[in-house]
Amino acid sequence: MNYTLEPHAQLRDVTLRDGLQLTGKLLSTEKKVQLVRELIRAGVPAIEIGSMARPDLVPPMANTLEVVSALSADELEKCWIWVATPGHVALAADAGARNFQYCFSVTDSHNQANIGRTTEASLAKLPEAVEAAREVGGRIQLCLATSFTCPFEGIVDPNRVLAIANDPRTEGTEAIVICDTLGQAAPAQVTDLITRVREETPPRQIVFHGHDTWGLGVSNTLAAIVAGATMVDGALGGLGGCPFAPGASGNTSSEDILFATQPAWLTPEKLSHLVNLAEGLLVELGEPNRSKTAQGVRSNAKVFPWVFESDEGEI
C-alpha cells in the first residue's frame, strides 16, 4: 500500500545536469543514455539530461548534445535541457531537444559568476528564447536560481523573485522553477514564497528545485508541494551542487523524495532498483551517497515492505 502525498507532484530527476556539475568527471554518452533509459523504465516522469554550459567551465556537460541526439523523440518528451541564451535553445533544438529550462539568477552577483551577465541582461533575452522554443514546437520554463539566498549577497528579498515572475518579458514560459540553490531555505520560507508565486504571479506550473545542505531538502520539497508546486527536482544519491555557488551541497535525493511522496507508480521493487542504480553511479564517480532511503531499504526491519535483503532490485 502506498501513502501517496496529496496534492501530487511529479519528480524530475536532475542527476545528469545538476548532479554531475561538481564531479569533475565526464560520463560517456553511452552511460548517460543508459541512465536516462533506466530512469524512464523505472517510471520517473521527467529527467534533466544536461546543460548547454560551456564545457571548459563545466566539463561534465561536454557531451550533452550527443546525449540528446542519441535519444528518441518519445524519450526526449520526458527530458529537459538547461539553457541560458536563445542560442543555447537553437543548438539544443537542432539536436532534437524540445523541453528547455531557461535559467538565470535573481541576484546580479551570482548571475555574473554563473552566466557572465547581469540578471537584467538575461531577462532581456528571454523573449528570444521563448520564440526559439516556440518555433520548434517546444516548451520552455523560467528557472530562477538564488530565489532564497545568494552566496554573495545573502538573503534574497522575495519581492525580487515576484518582480521577475511578473515581468511581461516572461510571457510564454509554461512554468517557473523556484530554486533553493544553496539549500539554506527553511520550510516556512519555502511555503511563503511558493504561495506568493502561486497567488501573485501569472498562472503557470510551479517547480521547486531544492538542495539538502542543511538537511531540509525533503522537508522543503514537501512544503513546496503543499503550497502549490506540481514538479520537484531531485538527484540520485543527493549528488550535485553548483560550481559557481560557494557553500552549495548536493541536491535533495530523488530516492528520498520518492519515498516521502510515494507516487502511484512507485513500488518497493522500483525504489530498490533506483537505490542500486544510484549506488553504482556514485561508486563510479567516487562520490558519497547522501540518500537516507539508501540506508532504509537495507535496514534490519525486514517486515517493512520497503526493505530488501538483496542488493538487487528488479523492475
Score class of each variant (00 low, 15 high):
Leu281Asp: 10
Glu153Pro: 02
Leu271Lys: 08
Trp214Leu: 15
Pro243Asn: 09
Ala264Lys: 07
Thr118Glu: 10
His8Cys: 02
Ala113Val: 00
Thr64Gly: 03
Val226Pro: 15
Ala245Cys: 05
Asn111Trp: 02
Gly138Asp: 11
Ile40Pro: 06
Ile225Lys: 00
Arg54Gln: 11
Thr15Glu: 06
Arg198Lys: 10
Leu236Lys: 01
Lys78Pro: 15
Glu287Trp: 14
Thr230Ile: 10
Leu27Lys: 02
Ala70Arg: 08
Met1Leu: 02
Val283Pro: 13
Ser310Arg: 15
Gly172Ala: 02
Val232Gln: 07
Ala229Gln: 01
Gly296Tyr: 15
Arg160Thr: 11
Ala97Lys: 01
Ala129Gln: 11
Phe100Ser: 10
Gln262Arg: 05
Phe152Ala: 06
Ala188Trp: 03
Ser253Met: 07
Asp56Trp: 04
Pro288Gln: 09
Leu71Met: 04
Arg117Ala: 12
Thr146Cys: 00
Cys143Trp: 04
Glu287Tyr: 09
Gln112Tyr: 04
Gly286His: 00
Glu131Leu: 12
Ile81Tyr: 01
Ser109Ala: 14
Val68Ser: 02
Ala90Val: 13
Val190Ala: 02
Pro158Ser: 00
Val58Phe: 04
Arg139Ser: 12
Asp256Gln: 08
Asn300Phe: 11
Leu162Phe: 05
Ala62Thr: 11
Tyr3Gln: 15
Leu285Lys: 00
Asp94Cys: 04
Ile257Pro: 09
Asp212Thr: 09
Gln34Ser: 10
Ala301Leu: 14
Glu153Ser: 09
Leu5Ala: 12
Glu38Phe: 02
Ala42Thr: 14
Val67Ser: 04
Ala223Trp: 07
Glu75Thr: 08
Asn166Cys: 02
Val14Ser: 07
Pro59Ser: 12
Gly228Val: 10
Cys103Gly: 12
Leu216Glu: 07
Gln34Lys: 03
Val283Cys: 03
Arg41Glu: 15
Ser51Glu: 01
Ser299Pro: 07
His273Tyr: 14
